[in-house]
Design a protein around this nucleic acid. Structure first.
Lengths: 323, 323
DNA sequence: CCCTGACATAAGAGATGGTTATGCTTACGT
DNA sequence: ACGTAAGCATAACCATCTCTTATGTCAGGG
């Protein structure tokens, strides 16, 4: 028999981190038995693991020595690089732990305009107060665009609203892996001039059949028309504007009346001579949360969704949905 | 049902490099299918691998998107660190390949003095000529110490000699995981003054019974005494020295005769008036290679052993062992 | 509106990697 | 010098992991 130098063609296509961990433990402890103990394995497990490694490499990694074991040059190489590998893995694990522990993470929110000055600031305040590492980006967008942003992965969470029977109801568009959660019922209020004989109760919608109407966003206008027609008249739409302040000013100026969601009215003081009343047949729209299927499993996003659900929204006239 | 933020207590105790490789492939290719193809796996293999990872982390790593897949923040974290990990693993693999390819590696050799100026320099020249990356360290030591060096892992290869029936024959001491390989038979020569009536053939040992004898190392002396006693006389040991030049000078000065191995005589010219002759009953000692069990699997060491075995040693009067 | 491309799921097979039990070798203490 | 203890290797067995093939589902494009 003659000794022939080992010469494998391919060397170590896959060094897995488990093996490196073992090498490192052996390098540190100086014996297989001690390494096994420190890693929580039995001694043969480590022994076999090293054997597999040596078979794969085609060269020894350890030399069996009196009181334990000693690394060969190949073993030293592995131990040296193992430090780098394990350090990188640990720091990855740390970053993941930060994400899981809400010490980092970005949540991209899209919401309709009247939420921008009400629920959204409160929400962001709540979360950054509790989890300073979580960061947000915010996009103001009407429901159709907000939902599209989620669909395009440009946003993680969209806050939207829908009117009853709305064909654009996000509930219906939940096809492409989107999830919709009803959040609140938002009361619609009539905005009218404060006439002396108005009383303080609800107003019959039909009593405003002869008034001029100031309409808001396209979908809002659609809803208004539908509602009025259900009451037997077609509203005379004189002005259209998204601007809440403008609507109120127009009502104050006697240019007409309006139907507005309570959120839109929450942050602007009513001008003198203008008041709000519910219609006799109470009218509501619904605020929804739309998110991609599975997004809630991302810790920061899940936490944000939970925080939205537990927001105390009554102050803005929002009623939590019974579901 | 209410969404609850994901919050695992322990995160990712073990991220194995296989998973990181997968993440990296997905990050690069943008789809699971493409990643699978590039890694040589089936599509479901990667799909399941990601699922396992996500279950372990407790958060998604990918979002399923129209034409393929997209990394989440967690995925980005992993992809980023995966680069570091895989780079380290690759460079470890490179270094191992260097060891396997004899482009690096250290071989520690211990050998007896007369090898130092004969076979060892030739050997080192041969190997560094063919494999410039392989480095050597050399320790000159008498057989017992050389073997001890191997046993202590202070040397990888020992060259030793033994006399027939030698109680210290390394063959016998092969207990502690050492391996002994007979290499050459080395002829023992009588070193005598060049007397006129000497002839040119072998010399009967008994004819030197009355000469003074110059002895070498302790084991050589032991062998000499044994050999002479087998010839019916006890040699008169006048001088003892390890120094070949000294022995030759003493013989030249007429102080006695000596029995020396051919290697020791190979590199020193004989002084005038001194000649060498084999004893009538040819006498040999054996040169061995001693190495630790399994050392030969270390590429550089295995290559060195092979090179020793294929050394053309006839020039020094060494005969390759029949085995 | 069907067809294609891409991911998920299911079920089964084989490799992987672990455990316990046991043997062997070597060092150490008396 | 011998018995004992410490440490590695091996065997046999077993659970789990992970890959494969086959199939289902969903969204986008001609």
């Amino acid at each position: 028999m003659t000794f022939v130098p080992a010469s494998r063609s391919t060397v170590a296509t896959d060094l897995d981190s488990q093996t490196l961990r073992v090498i490192r433990a052996i390098a540190d402890r100086g014996s297989i038995t001690a390494a096994a103990a420190s890693l929580g394995y039995s001694q043969p497990a480590i022994s076999q693991s090293i054997k597999r490694l040596e078979d794969k490499l085609g060269m020894p990694v350890l030399t069996r020595v009196a009181r334990g074991v000693e690394l060969t040059e190949a073993g030293e190489v592995l131990a040296r690089h193992a430090a780098t590998v394990l350090r990188a893995i640990d720091s990855a694990a740390d970053e993941l732990a930060d994400l899981a522990g809400l010490r980092s993470g970005l949540v991209r929110i899209a919401a309709f305009p009247s939420a921008s000055s009400t629920v959204v600031p409160r929400l962001l305040g709540d979360i950054t107060g509790r989890h300073p590492g979580v960061r947000f980006s915010y996009l103001e967008a009407e429901p159709p665009e907000a939902v599209q942003a989620v669909r395009d992965h440009a946003a993680d969470i969209a806050l939207t609203f829908s009117y009853p029977g709305d064909p654009d109801d996000p509930h219906r568009a939940s096809a492409s892996g989107l999830v919709t959660l009803p959040l609140w019922r938002e009361q619609m209020l009539l905005v009218v001039p404060d006439a002396p004989g108005l009383g303080d109760g609800a107003i019959e919608l039909a009593s405003l059949a002869d008034s001029g109407w100031i309409a808001g966003c396209p979908r809002c206008r659609g809803h208004l028309v539908e509602l009025c027609e259900a009451s037997g008249f077609t509203p005379a739409l004189g002005y259209e504007t998204d601007n809440v302040q403008a609507v109120l000013a127009m009502v104050a100026a006697g240019l007409g009346v309006a139907l507005m969601p309570s959120l839109a009215l929450a942050t602007t003081p009513l001008p003198a001579g203008v008041t709000t009343r519910p219609p006799t047949a109470a009218d509501y729209r619904t605020v929804h949360l739309v998110t991609a299927q599975g997004s809630a499993a991302v810790p920061a996003i899940g936490a944000t969704i939970a925080a939205i659900q537990s927001l105390d929204a009554a102050a803005w006239g929002l009623e939590t949905q019974s579901r």
